[in-house]
């Protein structure tokens, strides 16, 4: 029985971990291209989900449409963040953009609290139902979240490795000066990276909303922390790393919760991060990462 319960919590964790992977990809992509960290990312993602929820309750429509709206709004937020926190600040000063995105984080969180009076908002069910597979129960909404996250990752990988835009993005991330010399507009590529990651974030925020069943400002800080942990465990700038690490963190979280309860589980997730920092500071897929 213990084994079944354990396998069940691993399964649930891996399925939900897909959303952490999406948030981690957002952090890692911006880091890969600009060697900067966007602290406001998770806040903007949850903000995109909120905006989509507001719109869908206002004009009505199927629940799945909220996912697409969230992606669109998230992209817009990404562009805002780029213009307000990166575009006009000298990039040679790593502290300045760190601080400006922290300011943006506080602003985004505060806007969310302000417009909803701090009350959690119920998120409509996109896909419900429970699948019974022998002794296991598979929650339909988690499977849906997982499938959507994988789809979003595939689209992203296609964009990055099969299109001209993706080639330009990777060129900037490898050698900004050489990229500039061959005629790539760095500012444009940076802005587009923020739009793409913003869309990914908004989509992830809506997925999390539909899996948890509600949106709350309290999601923002844990999501930021989990996203950053995923980024570091996966290796800075590594997209496959972020995907694996996201699933791993989701799984670890659920397993620790099963053994030690909900108040202690995050301690062990953080300790997992420290183990990685000490023994594998480059992340799962250690590459020669240029450091910030």
């Amino acid at each position: 029985m213990l084994l079944v319960d354990l396998a069940q919590s691993i399964l649930d964790g891996v399925l939900f971990g897909a959303t952490y992977a999406l948030i981690g990809i957002g952090f890692t992509l911006v880091f890969g291209v600009m060697h900067k960290i966007n602290m406001a990312y998770a806040a903007a993602s949850v903000g995109g989900a909120y905006a989509a929820l507001r719109l869908i309750t206002l004009i009505g429509g199927p629940a799945w449409a909220s996912l697409l709206i969230a992606a669109a709004v998230g992209g817009l937020f990404g562009l805002f963040i780029y213009w307000l926190c990166f575009r006009f600040i000298p990039l040679s000063n790593p502290l300045a953009t760190l601080m400006s995105t922290v300011g943006m984080f506080l602003l985004a969180e505060e806007i969310i609290v302000h417009t909803t009076d701090g009350m959690p908002q119920n998120y409509p069910v996109v896909v419900g139902g429970i699948l019974h597979l022998g002794e296991f129960m598979i929650r339909g909404d988690l499977v849906f979240v997982f499938a959507c996250a994988i789809l979003a990752m595939l689209i992203l990988l296609y964009l990055l490795y099969r299109t001209k835009l993706g080639t330009a993005t990777r060129a900037v991330s490898q050698q900004p000066i050489a990229a500039q010399l061959v005629g790539i507009r760095i500012n444009q590529v940076n802005a587009l990276t923020f739009v793409v990651t913003g869309m990914l974030g908004g989509f992830a925020g809506a997925l999390i909303g539909s899996a948890v069943g509600l949106l709350s400002p309290l999601l923002v800080v844990p999501l930021t922390i989990k996203g950053l942990i995923v980024t570091v465990i996966g290796g800075l700038g590594s997209i496959p790393g972020a995907i694996i690490a996201g699933l791993l963190v989701g799984m670890a979280e659920n397993v620790f919760q099963y053994f030690r309860g909900v108040t202690e589980r995050d301690i062990y997730v953080m300790l997992l991060l420290f183990i990685f920092l000490v023994f594998r500071p480059g992340g799962i897929f250690s590459t020669t990462v240029k450091r910030d």
Binding site: A96, M99, S100, V102, G103, L106, E109, E110
Partner: peptide, 10 residues
Amino acid sequence: FGALIVLVMN
């Protein structure tokens, strides 16, 4: 508060 931090850093 957050907006002013963004502004000061700009």
